[in-house]
Every structure is written in C-alpha cells, then in structure tokens.
Amino acid sequence: MALLEVKNLRTYFFTDDGVAKSVDDVSYTVNRKETLGVVGESGCGKSVTALSIMRLIPMPPGRIVGGEILFDGVDLLKLPEDDMRAIRGNKIGMIFQEPMTSLNPVFTVGNQIEESILLHQKVSKEEAKNRAIEMLRKVGIPAPEQRYKEYPHQLSGGMRQRVMIAIALSCNPSVLIADEPTTALDVTVQAQILELINELQQTLGMGVILITHDLGVIAETADRVAVMYASHIVEYSAVNEIYFNPLHPYTVGLLGSIPKLHIESDRLMTIEGTVPVPTAYPVGCNFASRCPYATPTCLAEEPALKEVETGHFVACHHWDEVKVRRPEHLVEAN
C-alpha cells in the first residue's frame, strides 16, 4: 500500500470573479523512501494540492470539493480537525518557499522547534530542548547550542531553511512535503539544502513530495515526476521517462526552455501564449490554445490521464504524435 495517495482531488476557490478550480482531479502517490517531484509553473495548483493534503487551504474562499487523500489507508479529508492536527507536523511535515518569513520573528529558533516536539510528544521541556538542539545538529547548523537561543533575524536564509527542516522533521514524520524549498535561496545553498533533504530521507525513510518549478531540481532528486499544468496533472512517470521520453507537448516545451551549455542555440524555446485563468478554463484541453499539436478534438474534449506506456501516464489526445514529432535533439541532449 502506498504511504500517501491523493485520489481525484478537487480544490476550488470561490472568489468574487467566479469559481477558481485550482486543483481539478489530481491523483498521485508517494511511497516510503521515495521522492515524488511535482513540477509546474506558479499558479498551476501544485502548492494548493500540497496544502490540501495538510488541510491548510484557507477556508473561505477555498474548499476541497472532492476526492480522497489516503494516508496509511486513512482518508485525511474525513478526519475530525483534532485528529488532523495530530498528524500535521507529526506524521506529515511541511517546509515552505520563503525561509525568510516562515519563522516567527518573536520567538527563538529553539523555541520554535521545541513547540513542535511538545505538541506531539509527551516529553519534558528539558528533553524537548535536548531534542531541538539535536535536530539543529542534524540539519547541519554549526554551534547548535548557540543557535538555539537566537532569533530568526540573526540567521541567513539558508540557515533558516535548515531550521524549517528541523521543525518539519522534529517528530520523525513519514511524509515530508517540501514546497519550493530552494527557490528563494542562492544556488550554492540550494544544492546543500537538497542534499540535506536527500540525506535525511535516506536515514529517516520518509516519503518526500518535492514541489518545484525547476526541472533541474527534479532531475537531481526525484524518483518519479508529476507535471502539472492549469490544475491538472498532464504527465506522470518515472523521472528518466520525463527527461528522455516526454509525451506531453507541455513537458516538451518545459524541457526546451531550459538553457543548455553544450547546445548552441540563438534563443531558448518558449511556449507561446498564456495560461488560461482558473476561473475560466476552456471546455477541451487546457493546453490546446498554446499547443502546436492541437486539433479540433483538443478544443472539444478534455483528455484524460491514461497509462500509455508502462508506468507512464499522459493526458494528451496526440501523445503518439508528440513522440514522433518532438524535437529529438532536445530530448537526447538531456
């Protein structure tokens, strides 16, 4: 049984401008010791999916209108709030994009790690303090006894993200959701943080959902990848398949927009056109208006996500044509 299974999740936001279907029929699974990469541009619904798992969607205006989120076989969406709270930060930890603002400025770093421990475990304050310092050491913060007493504003961005990881992992969760954990950090620090997450995953054996808009990050860390576009998963497969055998035109476009040193090219490929607004998705395929392969079928009928090759899911009417016509240099170059 999968550790965490998201099934046909629908999260809508009921705004003044209409209903924004931010997550529309999204399914994916995460297993133990496995990293699922979720990639897509901002607004595609990848973060909302993650927040839905945590049940942290701001309500109103948001609401989870359908689907299941099975964690160890239990549907999180059906749990009473108190039981869900016992899971948050305990069984499922989460870290966020903005380490600069994700820590509370009025409490010490140690205090904030301790809080998480004391919330979920019956330990003394003394014990909690020891564990907090231990966590700081684990996430590679030098002089943890000293840092324990410091306030967030005294730490650098990378350090703060380490503290966030320490908070998220302080109760040995079985799932870690990392929502763009490195986007706001310097490139060198990015690599360190990803490395740290990988390492801790190996020792703690947790499943990781790594949300990012950066295909480079996915390549380095993920085992499987879900590509999201306009509230849907458009392609879902093992990481190698995504890079060497992309079957959705959007994925192909994404890969083409990565600059490559060894390929001489005047300019990067871009995807023409714009993403439809989530309050007004078209009838057919959401990508059709930008898609070089689009036919009248695409405008009329929404493609379902189906397994077209073993373990490789695509939501495209013309995946077979993509496979033939996609720019091969691009695929091979990866």
Binding site: M54, L56, P58, R85, A86, I87, R88, G89, N90, G93, M94, F96, E98, T101, S102, L103, N104, P105, E115, S116, L119, H120, M164, I167, A168
Partner: peptide, 15 residues
C-alpha cells in the same frame, strides 16, 4: 494571520 510563519505554526499542528 496570512503571514508565512502562521502557516508554519498551523503546519506544525498547533491548535
């Protein structure tokens, strides 16, 4: 309440 650190607190499982 819409600050990131409040979201962090909720994600910790705080009441």
């Amino acid at each position: 309440l819409s600050a990131d650190y409040v979201r962090t607190a909720k994600a910790k499982g705080a009441t």
